[in-house]
Each structure stands twice: as C-alpha cells, then as structure tokens.
Amino acid sequence: MLIELENIVKIYNQGRVNEVTALDKVEMAVEAGAMVCLKGPSGSGKSTLLAIIGCIYPPTSGRAVIAGRQLARLPDRFLTMHRRRTIGFIFQRFNILPRISVFENVVLPLLPLGMSPKERRALAEPLLERYGIAHRRNFPAGEISGGELQRVAIARALINDPPIILADEPTAHLDSRLSRDFLADMLALKEEGRTIIMASHDPLVTEAAGVDRVYGVHDGRVTKDAC
C-alpha cells in the first residue's frame, strides 16, 4: 500500500476549551496508482485527512504510513522533505500567488532546492506546454482566467514529479466544463501511474470516470465506498 492509515485521531487545541476532534479512528488504505475520492460536507474533516496524508502535520495518535514513511516518527523538517518529494498539492481556489508570474508560480517548490534558473526552466517548460499555458508564462497569475489558473496549479503540483497528487475541493470554483477538463487531467495523471486523492462534495468529482473508491467523511469518521 502506498498510503496506510490505522486508527488515526486528530485533535486540534488539545486540552483547551476549544478542543476539536477533527478525525476519529480513521482507517484507510490506498494502493499506488489508484484514484480515490473523499466525500463529505464542509467541516467534516476532509481537509484534515488530506493534510495528514499530505504530511503537513502528523496525527495526534494512530499510525500513518505515506510512501513508506511513518509520519508520527518524523520531525517537522523531515515531514517537509518527505512532502516535497512525494506529494503534489492542488488547493481549493488553487492558492496561486497572484502578483508573481505564471512561470514563477510553477517553479516555487524548486527554489529551496538550489536549482539553477536553467534547471528550473528545463522542468517547468514541458509542463507549461502540456497544460497549454506556455503563452502565459510571463503573465502575472492574477491576470489569467480561472481555467488557466487551474492548469497552473496542476503544473505546480507536478513540478517535483511526485507519485501522489492531493486535490482539496478542486472544482469548488469552476464551472462544469472546466471541472470536466480538470477531471480529464486527473485521469491522465492516473494513467501515468500517479495516485490521486481528491476531497470534494461535488458529484461530478465523486462520480467521475476513473475513481476507484469513494470514502465518506462525516464528523471526523470515515466510511468506505460512500457512493
């Protein structure tokens, strides 16, 4: 298994008056190359689950093994390094920095790696071409369309060539045509052998072709095959 979650609990603000249990005894396993959907309403714990799979923070308790690494044993520094190598993120609203160019957004994850401008160009240009945004490379990201933003986000998620792609409510701000384009792109990535995990309550996503399994997330609990 590429992703194994056993008895995962995540509690925010533990021991304080505003303590919240975001995930409660979550069990989940995802094979390499699968496309999985997390389905549930806002505030159900989908993003927290993605954050744990994405090595952003470790669980409060339980065993989480992502691409062969057990998260609870990794300090923050190594979590970040592991995330950099294995995870590509596509955020809700895409989280593109609007004041820098499309190209600069795409190569952002490479800057701390000490890559030269030439090396960065060599990695970014094929992705810009593949997603049809090469002609926008020098545009400030705040000045391009929603569909182009979405493709910038995908290109940025792929710049490190990660085996796992996580997408958090990726179609929440797209119309149905752009949503379908996005899902087609995800399917293409799956066919390349990448593992895709999408958190969404959009039926277009949860019922999309190529989705191998849908997990229901409700009040921090996860149920299998929610479709």
Binding site: G54, I56, D76, R77, T80, M81, R83, R84, F89, F91, N95, L97, L108, P109, L111, P112, R156, N160
Partner: peptide
C-alpha cells in the same frame, strides 16, 4: 503566502 510556501515544501528556515 507563507502557508502556501510551507505546503509546497519550503522549510521554516527557508
């Protein structure tokens, strides 16, 4: 911006 950079793999010292 800091959140995005962190999630994209920037370490806190970066």
């Amino acid at each position: 911006e800091i959140s995005i950079l962190k999630i994209l793999g920037w370490q806190t010292p970066d």
